[in-house]
Each structure stands twice: as structure tokens, then as C-alpha cells.
Amino acid sequence: MKKSKSTPHLSVIHRFWFIPAIAAVAGIGYGLEAGLNAYAMSLLANTGISILLAISLNWVIGITGQFSLGHAGLMAVGAYTSALLSLRLAPALSLTGLTGFAESAVFSVNLLIAGLVAAFFGFLLGLPSLRLKGDYLAIVTLGFGEVIRVLFLNIDAFGGARGLPGIPNSTHFFDVFSWVLIAVLIFSRILNSPEGRALKAVREDPIAAQALGIELFQFKLKAFVLGAFFAGVAGGLYAHFLQYINPQGFDFNRSFEIMIMVVLGGMGSLTGSVVAATLLTILKEALRPLQEITHIDFRMILYSLALIILMLLRPQGLFGSKELSLTFLKRLGGKR
């Protein structure tokens, strides 16, 4: 707060920066859709989905300090809800075969429902946080994710082990990045509000926070629900991007993968998660040729080594709990 208040016209830009940003994403999205090749598009969509998963998990782990390993389960709930809506409900309402804006609109409603269903499961997942914390919570949430996966594996209406094939290809660049933008927007807005500070207080010192009148359980639950919502949306995007889902895709290794993104970026740093998710998705693609030659998942060896070395050398992750922002960059520039 050392610097003087920004000028009025700047503060308007500060407040409503997301309107031009959404417009830009839409414009770039439609432009790229025509211009870029399929591979680059799929890489971008993958990156976006990873970002969405990483920031929503960071909201629970990094900001609120509740170590959850059930994120893949929530993603699965979103993916299955969204896929079933497209496969079963949409034909009944004759909403198939749409293109352009109509497709995007219907898909957004679909994802919204998927997110809400996942949010309900996030609420259930958050309930144990009333009595458990730390390692116990980690193992219970991991178990919760596994139970969800096994349920999907065993219920025939959900396709069982065969999974659900033939999901329409509705995930476009525009959809992915407007959801990423919405998520970043909501998260960053809450983060700098009294609610966000309360969440951070829950992370830093639960007992002190409680003494200050913060309802621990209520805030933990809120964080779980909001994180789960975006995990569900990411699941829906993932289902409509791959066009095929099966329970095996949502096992605890996926939860670990998302966790690695959060830890690498820095627990508590949303921009850190964005950067780490982008880096790791690109790394995954870069290592794919090597994997095809050797048939071994080198990616996971590198991930795990990176995780260990990171914990030994820089436990706070790339960004710590700092955010990459314009003022932060300016300060970096000023130092030089």
C-alpha cells in the first residue's frame, strides 16, 4: 500500500478487465479453431482442462489447507454426469447435432449441471473434514475417490468397465478457456475478499481462526464445494474432448497427477498452478514419442523425481504462495 492509489480510469479497467478478456478469448478461439491444426488444438484444450483441475484442487489444498486426494473422483462425477446428459438426455430433447453458438450454449448448461452434481459430491467429500485433518483426511478423500471409481465400474447404467463411448465432440477451445477464465475470475475475486482471507486463516492456523470467530467447518465445506464444482466442469470438458471415458481414467494416479501440478506451482498460488499445469501438460506431450518407443511411462518417473527433488530443494514450489501479477512483475522490474 506504499504506492499511491491508481487513477480512476485505470481502476475501471482493473474492475472490468474480464469483459475484454472474454471477448479476446472468444475471438482468438474462433480464429484458432479455423487456423490451427488438430494437434495444436488438442494440446491447448488439454492444457486448459489441466489448469482447471489444478486451480480447483489448489483452492482446497493450497488456499484452505485441506489435503484432499479425491479430486479424480469429483472429476469422474462431472465427466459421467456430463456424458450421460449428452448421450441419454440430449437425444430425448432432440438437442443433438447442433453447431456454433447453439452447441456452445447447450454444452454450457450441460457443464453447469455436471459441475453442480460434482459440487454436491464435493459437499459429501468435505463432510469428513469436520472430524479429520492432515494425513487422515488425505487417506479418507483418497478412499472416497476410489469408492466413486469402483461404483462407476460396477453399475451397468454407467457402462461398467467398458466405459462410455461415443460422446459428442463438443469441447472446443472457446469452451475450455472461457471456463478457465471464469474459474480464475471467481477464485481470484474470492481470494481478495474477506471470505478468501478467512479461508487462508483456516489454512494458516485453524485454532486461531476459530478463536477469531471463523466457522472452520463451514469455510472448509465451502472450499470443497467450489473446488468440486470446477473439477466437475473439467471432467465434463474432458469427457467431451476425449469422446470416451472409462473408470480407469479416474484412478488415484490422476489425483496424484493433479496434486503434483499444485505442488509444483506452489500451494496457495493460483497463477503458480496455471503455470505448472501448462508446463506439465506440454512436458507430457513432449515425452510421448519416447513413451511410444519404449512403452514405459517416463513421464511419471520424471514427475515423481521432480516431486522429491522439489520437496528437498524448494518445498514451497515454483511460486510459493505468491501470485504472478502485473504489480509483482513491475516490482521485479523495479528491483533491477
Binding site: F256, M267, I301, P315
Partner: peptide
């Protein structure tokens, strides 16, 4: 002397390292 959460993450890392280098 690090926070316990770092130990937990390291443990996950070691576990994954064993699994996938085992495959190798």
C-alpha cells in the same frame, strides 16, 4: 524439520518413483 505435508508429498513421490521405475 519440514512441515508434515512436505513429508507426505515426498512419500507420494517416492511411491510413484518405485512404481514407474519398477516398470522400467
Amino acid at each position: 524439520n519440514a512441515p508434515r505435508i512436505n513429508l507426505l508429498i515426498t512419500a507420494v513421490g517416492v511411491s510413484l518413483l518405485f512404481q514407474f521405475s519398477g516398470q522400467l
